[in-house]
């Protein structure tokens, strides 16, 4: 199971003048088991802050995050993360990167390599097992990062603009592959992006956040069959709708 429940989550950061910058305010959100959710919002709306709180990398000021009804404190092996930046360990080979989490759990050499190889196969990089990250392209590196996060078999996979730094073509390809992986592994995915196109292509549900203080502006369920055609009329309709939401955040949040 992987049902995430976020209750009244608030977070603020100290500003130079002594006041506090409210980044998230009483945010409530439920992500169903095996659901693919994209969180969308203009930059600075607290998307990354929210994801870091779910990950357990930071501690919230108030509120709670529950996984299958149990409150989470700190990082948790049931929650995996793919970072926006380049986060692979450059001193480890691709295989040793993927095996890192298993090594931390104390798995033996043979076992962790066997599992790591499975996940490398899942992302299609078996022949690069012995390479170092510096020898891979950006898209390949993010594939390894996905394999590394999945190797611990988490129930929730958090992704923080994982394809943001890639060129459009690679990006489309990786979105496609990610959906394949999601269908095979059936994880709950919380995916952060600022690309409307990406969100409409990937998500079961898009959650649009308002700018500071961040809270849920609107939730859009995308009942479009997959694989989705980026050029179809329905796709364009959803995209236009979400774009409008993002472009007029003030008028919309005042209605709410």
């Amino acid at each position: 199971m992987g049902r995430l429940e976020i209750v009244n989550l608030s977070q603020s950061f100290p500003r130079d003048d002594g006041s506090r910058l409210q980044v998230l305010e009483n945010l409530n959100l439920v992500v169903q088991d095996k659901e693919f959710v994209c969180i969308l919002g203009s930059s600075g709306c607290g998307k990354t802050t929210l994801l870091r709180l779910i990950a357990g990398l930071d501690t919230a000021e108030s509120g709670a995050i529950l996984l299958d009804g149990e409150e989470m404190k700190g990082t948790n092996a049931k929650v995996g993360m793919v970072f926006q930046e380049y986060s692979l360990f450059p001193w480890r080979t691709v295989l040793d990167n993927v095996a890192f989490g298993l090594e931390m759990q104390g798995a033996g050499r043979e076992e962790r390599y066997r599992i790591a190889e499975q996940y490398l196969e899942l992302v299609g990089l078996t022949q690069f097992a012995k390479s170092y990250p510096s020898e891979l392209s950006g898209g390949m590196r993010q594939r390894v990062a996905v394999a590394r996060a999945l190797a611990l078999d988490p129930v929730v996979l958090l992704m923080d603009e994982p394809f943001g730094a890639l060129d459009a073509q690679t990006r489309n390809m990786l979105q496609h592959e990610l959906l394949g992986i999601w269908e095979k592994t059936k994880k709950t995915i919380v995916f952060i992006t600022h690309s409307v196109d990406e969100a409409v292509f990937l998500a079961d549900r898009i959650i649009v956040l308002t700018p500071r203080p961040g809270k849920v502006c609107e939730t859009i369920s995308l009942e479009l069959p997959r694989p989705r055609d980026r050029t179809s009329v329905e796709f364009a309709k959803f995209r236009r709708y979400v774009l409008d939401l993002i472009n007029q955040p003030e008028s919309h949040s005042s209605k709410v």
Partner: peptide, 22 residues
Amino acid sequence: RIFVEAGRMLGCTRTRDQIRYI
């Protein structure tokens, strides 16, 4: 920082391990 955080997400949470492995 990102290496340390990536490590924490993968269960490398003790200071000793963070120094040794990351």
